[in-house]
Simulated assay, not measured.
Amino acid sequence: MRFLSVAAMLAVGLVGGQAAAQQVIKIGVVGPLTGAFAAVGQSQLTGAELRAKEINAAGGKYRIELVSEDDGSNCDQSVNATVKLITKDNVVAVLGAMNSPCALAMVPITKRYRTPQFTAGVGTSITKQGSDYVFRIAVGATAQTKELAGFAVEKLGQTKIAVLYSDDEYGASMANGFKEALAARNLQPAAFESFPRADQDFTGQLSRVKASGATGLYTIGAYTASALIAKQAKQLGLSLQLLGDTGNASPKYIELGGDAVEGAVLVEPFTPADPDPTLQAFGKRYREQYGRDADGWVAELYDTVEIIHQAVQKTGKIDRQAVRDYAANLKAGGNSFSGILGNWSFDQTGEVSFALYKVQVKGGAKVILAR
């Protein structure tokens, strides 16, 4: 009996020690799992989920727990979800939102509660609010449009490009960034047209694009809108070189646009077309789990979960300030983070930097033109 009691005590102690050794890192995820941007929200969640599963399967001192909230691209819901995740779920960081207006609406909340916010929203204003707690994990509007405009003019020979954009933070940031990039080359948009975010009829704007004599068209908005614009342009007999930023890099853009988006040139931070063995292995793991190709959002969130994991591992603290300080100290030239998207570093405003691919839609797939 004495032997059994000692054995039992040892067993309890062993189990208790294992439980105590593995600590939980809670990470909040805010994004659209329903509505027009649902595919983007799914990329966000599954990218984070894949890395969390890998970390948890490997064992170790820490395990990741994701707490996901669907905001349906409604910014009030984004704000409410952020408050809940921070005050009730006690997350160490918030991933989101995917939509720029909603990410912007969340910034005062994450700043107030001193909680690091990692967002793929590209609207220029997001990192201009004086918050030390917001980090952009996607290449911002200014850098994206500079690369896209430069490639369109210098490599594709497009000098008469019309711009058609959604009238929200994302659309305006991208449209104005592109306009500035053209101005740096002594060019102006052939047409500069906006549309309400929920619009589905673009014939008026496209008629003005046609009258402008444009040979290229840069569309900014939900990938659903951009695909619809491409179809309506084709119906109107317009033959234009389509251009798109990372917002159109979703596989859904090609699926919805069909033949109308054939030949479109896009920029994106990750592409399944890259033959690099590490990226191919990552893409294979993702396809096996989710039955589709990974995109830039998947890769961005995958890497971000690992950044948070490393922050906790290296500081030994499941602490919001520790995660914030670790991310803020990722700098180019020796202290960057190496992930699927290459070497990550943040500037003093929280802007990330990594290279973008220029890809073209050919035969319903993406082909790399340059990086």
Rank of each mutant, 00 (worst) to 15 (best):
D245V: 09
L236H: 04
I161N: 00
Y170G: 06
I220D: 04
D347E: 11
F37E: 15
A294L: 08
S43P: 01
Q360I: 08
R51W: 11
Y170S: 05
L66S: 02
G41S: 11
S131M: 10
G339N: 07
V361I: 15
A264S: 15
L217A: 08
I55V: 14
K366Y: 10
T271Q: 00
Q360P: 00
Y302V: 08
W344Q: 05
G257D: 05
P32R: 15
K160W: 02
G59H: 05
I55Y: 01
A138Q: 15
F178C: 11
I137W: 11
A81N: 04
T142D: 15
F337C: 04
E268H: 10
A20E: 15
T142A: 11
S353N: 08
Y223G: 11
S239L: 02
G258Y: 07
K111L: 12
G150W: 09
D167W: 02
G283Y: 12
L10R: 07
F37H: 11
V40Y: 03
D201G: 10
D70W: 03
V92R: 12
V91N: 07
G17P: 05
N56S: 13
L266H: 06
Y113W: 13
S212D: 04
A11Y: 07
V298R: 10
F178M: 09
Q22M: 10
K146N: 15
A7K: 02
R51T: 06
A120Y: 03
V24R: 15
S212I: 09
N74Y: 05
G221N: 10
L243R: 02
A299E: 01
K210Y: 05
V312M: 11
G263N: 10
K331D: 01
R197H: 05
Y302Q: 13
E193L: 13
T349L: 14
E49C: 00
A181N: 05
Q42P: 00
L164P: 00
